[in-house]
Nucleic acid binder design. Structure first.
Length: 551
RNA sequence: UGGGCUGUAGCCAAGCGGUAAGGCACGGGACUUUGACUCCCGCAUGCGGUGGUUCGAAUCCACCCAGCCCAGCCA
């Protein structure tokens, strides 16, 4: 019998179940609230899967809302990219696409309400002075000399701020809470500042902009969000959000739940650092296959399914943690193993001449497209006297347990014949020119009537038929280990192989296709591919037991 | 040395007073026309530490230790 009664539930879902059971909420509404100041990365993917996942699980809805309250850092390009990434990940916000900037009038109205109630004031202190007055972690702050202006005066000043009568930084609006609170967020936080800047959406309509803390909680409330899921660093802000919502005329008061953000080994999860990678040219843009951005992962060849499975597997909790990147590798392999057709490619070719094979003969051997999926069918691959094999599949003087090709050794060419190495032809510098072999005509298809065992099986390509391709291999941008961040940056994280070859069937292949290059790994045809030259990214290598053994 | 939060295996993570799930990694074996996949097996007398309560504690209490976050007119 099935036994899936034990449905995995994280602590957030436990809270939601409880709220539902107590009748606190009838419908679950969540949201994913990015600031459009950069591209989304794998850490955001976890949050997206969490928020949209919860909505789906509970039959509720999840909004996509841009927290665009800082016009100096935000751009339309980022808005478009974020929408594309969320959609690609497989989530649908339906008609629920919102912007904090849609609520600017509301925020303004609520700010005036606080002023009327004597709960907000216009402060003339400079940024430096405000910082000095704020106190420290262990000492209370001091009140601003402007803290006791009358509501009328504050209202007049605030309206003049809005009207553009002051320069940037000349005045701010602050909440009047408690300068001696042990929670620094409660020490009269700034809620509006003057920025004479053009906003991607509201353009020149405003010269005062609300701070995140003020805008965010009100946006959630306006949208009817029931559960505001966010990361741990906002835990200290919750009392502030509660204060705002308790002091303005608004009905809904979402419950905020904080979880630990995702960290992955050898992976940069800071938008600031990722932006510097882009601007300093360490990578070729936000969608460079080495980037942990969703756009980068997509171009590398990751699938939405694999990322969702990964997000599900890492779980949700409150403990800071760093997930082993091997986990991500596992889920993309797991997914591609099921769907990627097998094909042969030789990345670093070395020529093999089969001396007893007829000069001009070509045989088309049958090859299965996916041994794990009989429905995937078969294809024909050309075989001839001269072939390419992988450089590392031959060793003149092999260590023990090496069961690839070496002098006197017999191996199987996948789908084709058994060959035995007779001798090696080298040039003056000692570099291999050709490896000479003989083949056993009785072994066609890859087995013999005498059923003798051949331990090694190699992939290969008929030299005359092989199609040249470019293959790009990637390593993590960050090296393993500890130390100064800059010293860990891998400035040689991409290797471009321009002399690789693939099966003739891949000539002119479309971009966006997944393959398993037999024995090498999973590859993805890059958008840089053209009619003349295909370009493949290595998504991830196959697990390589030999690499471990040979060390 | 203020406030908030967190410590369960190498890495994630269940567990909610009844005797330590699961995944990744790792090790061993089987299978193999991919050294892949798949399949078996192994992997915490132990839950940050010390006391206490209890017939019984990872779960409750006390104290201690360690780590993370907060002093933007960023989000």
């Amino acid at each position: 019998m099935e036994k899936e009664k034990k449905e995995a539930r994280n602590f957030i879902e436990a809270i939601i179940d409880d709220d539902l059971a107590r009748g606190k909420v009838q419908q679950v509404v969540t949201r994913f609230p990015p600031e459009p100041n950069g591209y989304l990365h794998i850490g955001h993917a976890k949050s997206i899967c969490l928020n949209f996942g919860i909505a789906k699980k509970y039959g509720g809805r999840c909004h996509l809302r841009f927290d665009d309250t800082n016009p100096e850092k935000e751009e339309q390009e980022y808005i478009d990219a974020i929408c594309e990434d969320v959609r690609w990940l497989g989530f649908d916000w339906g008609s629920h696409l919102y912007y904090a900037s849609d609520y600017y009038e509301d925020f303004y109205k609520y700010a005036e309400e606080l002023i009327e109630k004597g709960l907000a004031y216009v402060d003339d202190l400079s940024a430096e002075e405000i910082r000095a007055y704020r106190g420290t972690l262990t000492e209370p702050g001091r009140v601003s000399p402007w803290r006791d202006r009358s509501p009328e005066e504050n209202m007049t000043l605030f309206r003049r701020m809005k009207a553009g009568e002051f320069k940037d930084g000349e005045k701010v609006l602050r909440a009047r809470i408690d300068m001696s609170s042990p929670n620094i967020n409660m020490r009269d936080p700034v809620i509006y500042r003057i920025k004479h800047a053009s906003h991607p959406r509201t353009k020149e309509a405003w010269c005062i902009y609300p701070m995140y803390d003020f805008a965010h909680c009100i946006s959630d409330a306006i949208e009817g969000i029931t559960h505001s899921v966010c990361t741990l660093e906002f835990e200290d802000h919750r009392p502030l959000y509660d204060w705002f919502l308790d002091h303005i005329s608004i009905e809904n008061h979402p419950r905020q739940i904080e979880f630990a953000r995702l960290n992955v080994t050898q992976t940069v999860m800071s938008k600031r650092k990722l932006l510097s990678f882009v601007s300093e040219g360490l990578v070729n843009g936000w969608d460079d296959p080495r980037m942990p951005t969703i756009a980068g992962l997509r171009r590398r060849g990751f699938t939405p399914e694999s990322i969702r499975a990964f997000a599900e597997a890492v779980g949700v909790a409150k403990a800071n943690s760093v997930v082993d990147s091997a986990m991500l590798d596992y889920f993309i392999r797991d997914d591609l193993n099921r769907r990627a057709p097998r094909v042969m490619a030789v990345l670093r070719p070395v020529k093999v001449v089969i001396d007893n094979y007829p000069e001009d003969k070509v045989e088309w051997v049958e090859a299965e497209n996916n041994p794990n999926d009989p429905g995937a069918g078969t294809r024909k691959v050309p075989f001839s006297r001269e072939i390419y094999i992988e450089e590392e599949d031959f060793m003149e003087d092999p260590p023990k347990k090496y069961f690839r090709l070496s002098p006197g050794r017999e191996v199987r060419l996948k789908h084709a014949y058994y060959i035995t190495c007779t001798h090696v032809d080298r040039d003056e510098e000692g570099k291999i020119r050709e490896i000479h072999c003989t083949y056993d005509p009785a072994s066609r298809g890859g087995w013999t009537p005498d059923e003798r065992k051949v331990k090694g099986t190699l992939h290969w390509l008929s030299a005359a038929h092989a199609v040249r391709a470019e293959v790009r291999l990637y390593e993590p941008l960050i090296r393993e280990g500890e130390g100064e961040f800059d010293n860990l940056i891998n400035r040689d994280s991409r290797e471009t192989l321009t002399d690789a070859f693939v099966e003739p069937g891949l000539k002119g292949i479309d971009s966006g296709r997944h393959f398993q290059f037999l024995r090498l790994g999973y590859f993805f045809s890059d958008p840089d591919s053209s009619e003349e030259k295909s370009v493949f990214n290595r998504v991830v290598g196959l697990k390589d037991t030999w690499a471990k053994v040979s060390q």
